[in-house]
């Protein structure tokens, strides 16, 4: 497969904090971590999905002016960014594992409509849903 979605980015308030969360707690791997002065291109990957990178980007000057960067940080912290969904094999097991690593869950696993789902947030405020389908 040569044509596909390669990178989708999230805004995070602090890239060190995001790295610790996505790599240290969720178990993602670093794909690229390149700096150019104050700018840092950081992407991570789900271990079972090597063709896709999740970018962890900080809204910052000069890409954005300071007021825009501040507004974006506020929006993320208010949970206003779009939903993120991850498929898991066993929602309750993943929930237990991530809880033990200190992930902030906003909804415990609930079985509904043949699925089990739970919600958590990253430290910046991005909201994730994990779904186990056909449970």
């Amino acid at each position: 497969m040569s044509e596909a979605i390669q990178v989708v980015g999230l805004y995070v308030r602090d890239q060190d904090e995001a790295h610790d969360f996505y790599v240290g707690k969720l178990g993602f791997r670093v794909h690229t971590d390149q700096r150019n002065g104050d700018y840092r291109w950081l992407t991570v990957q789900h271990p079972d999905q090597p063709s896709f990178q999740l970018g962890l980007f900080r809204p910052q000057p000069p890409v954005h002016d300071a007021a825009t960067a501040q507004a974006l940080n506020e929006l993320v912290a208010k949970g206003a960014m779009p939903p993120l969904v991850m498929a898991v094999d066993d929602c309750r097991a993943t929930y237990e594992l991530l809880c033990s690593r200190g992930v902030e869950f906003t909804q415990e696993p609930i079985a509904r409509y043949g699925n089990v789902d739970a919600n958590f947030r990253d430290p910046s405020g991005n909201g994730w849903k994990i779904i186990e389908q056909g449970a």
């Binding site: 912290a77 949970g79 906003t106 947030r121 430290p123 405020g125």
Partner: peptide, 14 residues
Amino acid sequence: QDPLLLRRLLRAKD
């Protein structure tokens, strides 16, 4: 508003 404060307010909303 300070993003760190907003993040804590979001916790109450959650």
